[in-house]
Protein backbone atom coordinates (compact mmCIF):
# COMPACT_ATOMS: atom_id res chain seq x y z
CA UNK A 1 0.00 0.00 0.00
CA UNK A 2 1.71 3.10 -1.24
CA UNK A 3 -0.10 6.16 0.07
CA UNK A 4 2.29 8.56 -1.65
CA UNK A 5 0.98 7.10 -4.87
CA UNK A 6 -2.62 6.59 -3.77
CA UNK A 7 -3.41 9.86 -1.98
CA UNK A 8 -3.55 12.06 -5.09
CA UNK A 9 -5.67 9.41 -6.81
CA UNK A 10 -7.99 9.29 -3.82
CA UNK A 11 -8.38 13.08 -3.90
CA UNK A 12 -9.12 12.95 -7.59
CA UNK A 13 -11.71 10.20 -7.05
CA UNK A 14 -13.31 12.17 -4.22
CA UNK A 15 -13.48 15.20 -6.50
CA UNK A 16 -15.18 13.15 -9.21
CA UNK A 17 -17.71 11.79 -6.72
CA UNK A 18 -18.37 15.27 -5.40
CA UNK A 19 -18.93 16.54 -8.96
CA UNK A 20 -21.35 13.73 -9.84
CA UNK A 21 -23.26 13.85 -6.57
CA UNK A 22 -23.59 17.62 -6.31
CA UNK A 23 -24.70 18.13 -9.90
CA UNK A 24 -27.20 15.29 -9.56
CA UNK A 25 -28.53 16.66 -6.28
CA UNK A 26 -28.92 20.08 -7.85
CA UNK A 27 -30.49 19.13 -11.17
CA UNK A 28 -32.23 15.92 -10.06
CA UNK A 29 -33.45 17.65 -6.91
CA UNK A 30 -34.91 20.57 -8.83
CA UNK A 31 -36.51 18.47 -11.56
CA UNK A 32 -37.68 15.91 -9.01
CA UNK A 33 -39.36 18.65 -6.97
CA UNK A 34 -41.07 19.91 -10.13
CA UNK A 35 -42.16 16.44 -11.21
CA UNK A 36 -43.31 15.58 -7.69
CA UNK A 37 -45.36 18.78 -7.53
CA UNK A 38 -46.78 17.92 -10.94
CA UNK A 39 -47.81 14.50 -9.67
CA UNK A 40 -49.39 15.98 -6.57
CA UNK A 41 -51.19 18.85 -8.30
CA UNK A 42 -52.65 16.79 -11.15
CA UNK A 43 -53.83 13.98 -8.88
CA UNK A 44 -57.63 13.70 -9.10
CA UNK A 45 -59.24 15.98 -6.54
CA UNK A 46 -56.24 18.30 -6.23
CA UNK A 47 -55.59 21.84 -7.42
CA UNK A 48 -54.82 21.20 -11.08
CA UNK A 49 -56.43 17.80 -11.35
CA UNK A 50 -55.94 16.23 -14.74
CA UNK A 51 -56.60 12.53 -15.07
CA UNK A 52 -54.51 12.06 -18.22
CA UNK A 53 -51.44 14.06 -17.20
CA UNK A 54 -51.45 12.40 -13.79
CA UNK A 55 -51.69 8.93 -15.35
CA UNK A 56 -48.77 9.64 -17.68
CA UNK A 57 -46.53 11.08 -14.94
CA UNK A 58 -47.45 8.33 -12.52
CA UNK A 59 -46.72 5.61 -15.08
CA UNK A 60 -43.37 7.19 -16.01
CA UNK A 61 -42.28 7.28 -12.36
CA UNK A 62 -43.46 3.75 -11.78
CA UNK A 63 -41.56 2.47 -14.81
CA UNK A 64 -38.25 4.26 -14.25
CA UNK A 65 -37.88 3.94 -10.50
CA UNK A 66 -37.62 0.14 -10.11
CA UNK A 67 -35.06 -0.37 -12.93
CA UNK A 68 -31.67 -1.31 -11.44
CA UNK A 69 -29.38 1.64 -12.08
CA UNK A 70 -26.71 -0.36 -13.90
CA UNK A 71 -29.31 -1.56 -16.43
CA UNK A 72 -30.88 1.90 -16.63
CA UNK A 73 -27.45 3.31 -17.60
CA UNK A 74 -27.28 1.03 -20.61
CA UNK A 75 -30.93 1.47 -21.56
CA UNK A 76 -30.59 5.24 -21.47
CA UNK A 77 -27.57 5.07 -23.81
CA UNK A 78 -29.20 6.43 -26.98
CA UNK A 79 -30.72 9.38 -25.13
CA UNK A 80 -27.44 10.06 -23.35
CA UNK A 81 -25.62 10.12 -26.70
CA UNK A 82 -28.24 12.49 -28.15
CA UNK A 83 -27.95 14.92 -25.23
CA UNK A 84 -24.31 14.64 -24.11
CA UNK A 85 -22.71 13.44 -27.33
CA UNK A 86 -21.15 10.35 -25.77
CA UNK A 87 -22.27 7.34 -23.76
CA UNK A 88 -19.16 7.24 -21.59
CA UNK A 89 -17.34 9.61 -19.31
CA UNK A 90 -18.35 11.55 -16.23
CA UNK A 91 -20.84 13.81 -18.07
CA UNK A 92 -22.69 10.86 -19.60
CA UNK A 93 -22.78 9.11 -16.26
CA UNK A 94 -23.97 12.22 -14.41
CA UNK A 95 -26.71 12.69 -16.99
CA UNK A 96 -28.07 9.21 -16.24
CA UNK A 97 -27.82 9.92 -12.50
CA UNK A 98 -29.80 13.16 -12.85
CA UNK A 99 -32.44 11.29 -14.81
CA UNK A 100 -32.85 8.56 -12.20
CA UNK A 101 -32.63 10.98 -9.25
CA UNK A 102 -35.44 13.07 -10.75
CA UNK A 103 -37.82 10.11 -10.73
CA UNK A 104 -36.76 8.86 -7.31
CA UNK A 105 -37.12 12.30 -5.73
CA UNK A 106 -40.43 12.98 -7.53
CA UNK A 107 -42.06 10.11 -5.69
CA UNK A 108 -40.59 11.22 -2.37
CA UNK A 109 -41.85 14.76 -2.90
CA UNK A 110 -45.32 13.60 -3.89
CA UNK A 111 -45.61 11.35 -0.85
CA UNK A 112 -44.63 14.18 1.47
CA UNK A 113 -47.08 16.60 -0.11
CA UNK A 114 -49.94 14.13 0.15
CA UNK A 115 -49.58 14.28 3.92
CA UNK A 116 -50.37 18.03 3.97
CA UNK A 117 -53.81 18.76 5.39
CA UNK A 118 -56.03 19.57 2.37
CA UNK A 119 -57.76 22.08 4.66
CA UNK A 120 -54.86 24.54 4.55
CA UNK A 121 -54.82 24.36 0.76
CA UNK A 122 -58.55 25.02 0.76
CA UNK A 123 -58.04 27.96 3.13
CA UNK A 124 -55.47 29.47 0.77
CA UNK A 125 -57.85 28.99 -2.16
CA UNK A 126 -60.60 30.66 -0.17
CA UNK A 127 -58.32 33.68 0.27
CA UNK A 128 -57.95 33.97 -3.48
CA UNK A 129 -54.44 32.51 -3.84
CA UNK A 130 -53.46 31.18 -7.28
CA UNK A 131 -52.17 27.61 -7.65
CA UNK A 132 -48.61 28.85 -8.20
CA UNK A 133 -48.78 30.96 -5.05
CA UNK A 134 -50.17 28.01 -3.12
CA UNK A 135 -47.22 25.88 -4.23
CA UNK A 136 -44.78 28.57 -3.17
CA UNK A 137 -46.36 29.73 0.07
CA UNK A 138 -48.30 26.71 1.32
CA UNK A 139 -47.21 23.37 -0.11
CA UNK A 140 -43.43 23.76 0.03
CA UNK A 141 -43.22 25.61 3.37
CA UNK A 142 -45.73 23.30 5.08
CA UNK A 143 -43.91 20.16 3.89
CA UNK A 144 -40.42 21.61 4.29
CA UNK A 145 -39.24 19.34 7.11
CA UNK A 146 -40.16 16.06 5.39
CA UNK A 147 -38.86 17.47 2.10
CA UNK A 148 -35.47 18.10 3.72
CA UNK A 149 -35.42 14.56 5.09
CA UNK A 150 -36.42 13.23 1.67
CA UNK A 151 -33.61 15.23 0.09
CA UNK A 152 -31.16 13.77 2.61
CA UNK A 153 -32.42 10.33 1.68
CA UNK A 154 -31.89 11.22 -1.97
CA UNK A 155 -28.28 12.18 -1.19
CA UNK A 156 -27.55 8.70 0.13
CA UNK A 157 -29.21 7.13 -2.92
CA UNK A 158 -27.22 9.35 -5.28
CA UNK A 159 -23.94 8.55 -3.51
CA UNK A 160 -24.87 4.89 -3.91
CA UNK A 161 -25.49 5.37 -7.65
CA UNK A 162 -22.18 7.17 -8.09
CA UNK A 163 -20.30 4.09 -6.88
CA UNK A 164 -20.65 2.38 -10.23
CA UNK A 165 -19.28 5.40 -12.09
CA UNK A 166 -16.26 3.32 -13.10
CA UNK A 167 -18.53 1.30 -15.34
CA UNK A 168 -18.79 4.26 -17.74
CA UNK A 169 -15.30 5.57 -17.00
CA UNK A 170 -16.59 8.33 -14.76
CA UNK A 171 -14.23 7.51 -11.91
CA UNK A 172 -15.20 8.40 -8.38
CA UNK A 173 -14.67 6.79 -4.97
CA UNK A 174 -16.39 3.54 -5.96
CA UNK A 175 -14.11 3.16 -8.94
CA UNK A 176 -11.10 3.92 -6.74
CA UNK A 177 -12.12 1.23 -4.25
CA UNK A 178 -12.43 -1.34 -7.03
CA UNK A 179 -9.39 -0.46 -9.12
CA UNK A 180 -6.94 0.36 -6.33
CA UNK A 181 -8.37 -1.94 -3.67
CA UNK A 182 -10.28 -4.94 -4.93
CA UNK A 183 -8.25 -5.59 -8.06
CA UNK A 184 -4.92 -5.10 -6.22
CA UNK A 185 -6.03 -7.42 -3.40
CA UNK A 186 -5.51 -4.43 -1.14
CA UNK A 187 -8.34 -4.65 1.38
CA UNK A 188 -7.02 -1.73 3.36
CA UNK A 189 -7.68 0.65 0.47
CA UNK A 190 -11.25 -0.63 0.10
CA UNK A 191 -11.74 -0.28 3.85
CA UNK A 192 -10.51 3.32 3.80
CA UNK A 193 -13.02 4.20 1.06
CA UNK A 194 -15.82 2.50 2.99
CA UNK A 195 -14.95 4.51 6.10
CA UNK A 196 -14.85 7.76 4.09
CA UNK A 197 -18.28 7.05 2.60
CA UNK A 198 -19.79 6.11 5.95
CA UNK A 199 -18.45 9.31 7.50
CA UNK A 200 -19.85 11.45 4.66
CA UNK A 201 -23.28 9.80 4.90
CA UNK A 202 -23.38 10.22 8.68
CA UNK A 203 -22.41 13.87 8.44
CA UNK A 204 -25.02 14.64 5.78
CA UNK A 205 -27.72 12.75 7.68
CA UNK A 206 -26.89 14.70 10.83
CA UNK A 207 -27.08 17.96 8.89
CA UNK A 208 -30.40 16.95 7.27
CA UNK A 209 -31.95 15.98 10.59
CA UNK A 210 -30.87 19.25 12.13
CA UNK A 211 -32.30 21.35 9.31
CA UNK A 212 -35.55 19.38 9.32
CA UNK A 213 -35.92 19.91 13.06
CA UNK A 214 -35.43 23.63 12.60
CA UNK A 215 -38.00 23.68 9.80
CA UNK A 216 -40.57 21.95 11.99
CA UNK A 217 -40.79 24.67 14.66
CA UNK A 218 -43.76 23.01 16.32
Amino acid sequence: MNWDYLTPLLWEAAGQTAYMVLITLLIGGFLGLALGLGLYLTRPGNLLQHRFVFAVLNLAVNIVRPIPFIIFLVALGPLTRAVIGSTIGIEAFTFAMCFMATFVFARLVEQNLVSIDPGVVEAARAMGASPFRIVRTVLVPEALAPLILGYTFLFVGVLDMSAIGGYLGAGGLGDFAIVQGYRQYDWAVTAVVVVIIVVIVQAVQWLGNGLARRALRR
Binding site: A126, G128, E142
Partner: peptide, 19 residues
Protein backbone atom coordinates in the same frame (compact mmCIF):
# COMPACT_ATOMS: atom_id res chain seq x y z
CA UNK B 1 -59.99 34.69 -7.19
CA UNK B 2 -60.79 38.35 -6.50
CA UNK B 3 -64.35 37.35 -5.56
CA UNK B 4 -62.98 34.82 -3.07
CA UNK B 5 -60.58 37.39 -1.66
CA UNK B 6 -63.61 39.52 -0.77
CA UNK B 7 -65.22 36.74 1.27
CA UNK B 8 -63.69 35.62 4.56
CA UNK B 9 -63.91 32.00 5.62
CA UNK B 10 -63.44 30.29 8.98
CA UNK B 11 -63.03 26.52 9.24
CA UNK B 12 -63.85 23.83 11.78
CA UNK B 13 -60.23 22.65 11.89
CA UNK B 14 -58.90 26.26 11.75
CA UNK B 15 -56.62 25.42 8.77
CA UNK B 16 -53.81 27.70 9.91
CA UNK B 17 -50.39 27.43 8.28
CA UNK B 18 -48.14 25.61 10.76
CA UNK B 19 -45.06 27.10 9.08
Amino acid sequence: RPVRAGIGMVFQQFNLLAS
